Simulated scan of single mutants.
Amino acid sequence: MTIAVAADIVIDARSGRVEGASAGERVAITVLRSAMFFLKPFANVGISYVARAMRALLPSDRPMLFVLTPDSSMRVAYCDTYWSVLVSPNYAYERSVKALLKASRDVDYGFIDGGANHGYWSILVSGGEFGAKKAVAIEAASDTFCRLDDNRSLNEGRFSVLNRAIGATSGQRVRVYGAKHEARSTVAPSVDAVPILDCETISVDDLADLPEFAGLDKFVVKLDVEGVEIAAFSGAQRLLSGDTVFVYEEHGSDTRHETTRHVMDVMKLRVFWLGDGRARELSTADELDRIKKSRRAGYDMVASSSPFWLDRLDASASTVH
């Protein structure tokens, strides 16, 4: 059971109940919820500006603590420009990924959380509702990693954390770019981009060899690594040959669908889009032309060559035509 401290503004992510907030903080939360309602038809684009405005107009140095499930909580900064979406009761954050992980509750797997940010998925997967899986959360940016480590402690240290960047090989020094914590990358966005941090890499295969996963032969690998997905896959050769399913994001801005094209054409994995509440298999990467509706959105994909995981995906899949 996680325990909030007096400094936290406690928000139940399911019911929306708020505890410990001042009048000004409650107004900020109400404004955020109203903005979420009006922005829903636009995929909540613009909520970051509302959160930033609330931080300026109704400032507070107290963090928000979201109670995700009875035994899982996540602490974030007040009016965080990314995670403030959770103020909306029962907000469906990456609904399809959650459905996949809940459907795998009966499987004894290890969870590798690449690009963990504040630890949302590791918090849930290691909790009771998702089967209390062994999890390791990896975050490259040291400032965000501090938030991740705080959430590990908040949830009784039931998952492990590493301040590393996912890479093709381990032990390489890389630079980290990006002002927004949710969009940090080891890929420079432009030739004149200035790095803000640096970090050491670790491969997916080396992560699977950590003591936390001793005795496990099945894995779920979540890759939210902002442009280095192909490198991450190349560092997972052992897991690719075993019972592993990979969850990764196709960026709407990539009109060539390079990651999925590589996964299907070079790596010869079967790929499913986690959309419309079920897994839908792709025959070619070009089918993403019709799936990607927004250049600003991310699209959750699953890839595997494991008969075990493919049987489970096939059971709930339809083919995209």
Results as ranks from 00 to 15, higher is better:
Thr2Lys: 01
Thr2Val: 10
Thr2Glu: 00
Ala6Leu: 11
Val10Asp: 01
Ile11Thr: 00
Ile11Ser: 00
Asp12Met: 02
Gly16Gln: 04
Val18Asn: 03
Val27Cys: 05
Ala28Gly: 08
Ala28Thr: 07
Leu32Asn: 01
Ser34Met: 13
Ala35Arg: 06
Phe42Gly: 01
Asn44Leu: 12
Gly46Ser: 09
Ser48Gly: 07
Val50Ala: 01
Ala53Trp: 08
Ala53Glu: 07
Ala53Ile: 10
Met54Phe: 05
Leu57Trp: 11
Leu57Glu: 04
Leu58Ile: 12
Pro63Ala: 00
Phe66Trp: 06
Leu68Ile: 10
Leu68Gly: 04
Thr69Trp: 02
Val76Met: 02
Val76Glu: 00
Cys79Leu: 05
Thr81Asn: 08
Ser84Gly: 06
Ser88Leu: 12
Pro89Asn: 09
Asn90Lys: 07
Tyr91Asp: 01
Tyr91Ile: 03
Arg95Lys: 14
Ser96Pro: 07
Ser96Lys: 02
Ala99Ser: 13
Ala99Tyr: 10
Ala103Glu: 14
Ser104Lys: 02
Asp106Glu: 15
Gly114Lys: 03
Gly115Tyr: 02
His118Cys: 11
His118Thr: 14
Ser122Val: 13
Phe130Ala: 06
Gly131Gln: 08
Ala132Cys: 13
Ala132Asn: 14
Val136Thr: 05
Ala140Trp: 05
Cys146Ile: 13
Asp150His: 11
Asn155Lys: 09
Ala168Tyr: 02
Gly171Ile: 07
Gln172Leu: 15
Arg173Leu: 14
Arg175Met: 12
Tyr177His: 07
His181Tyr: 11
His181Arg: 12
Arg184Phe: 08
Arg184Asn: 11
Val187Phe: 02
Ala188Asp: 11
Pro189Ala: 09
Val194Arg: 10
Leu207Tyr: 08
Lys218Gln: 08
Val220Trp: 05
Leu223Lys: 06
Asp224Tyr: 06
Glu226Thr: 07
Val228Ala: 01
Ala236Ser: 14
Glu249His: 09
Gly252Cys: 03
Ser253Met: 10
Arg261Phe: 09
His262Asp: 12
Lys268Leu: 10
Phe272Gln: 00
Leu274Asp: 05
Gly277Arg: 09
Arg278Gly: 05
Glu281Gln: 15
Leu282Tyr: 08
Asp286Ser: 15
Ser294Arg: 13
Ser294Ala: 06
Asp300Lys: 10
Asp300Tyr: 12
Met301Arg: 08
Ala303Gly: 09
Asp311Thr: 14
Leu313Lys: 00
Ser316Asn: 11
Val320Glu: 01
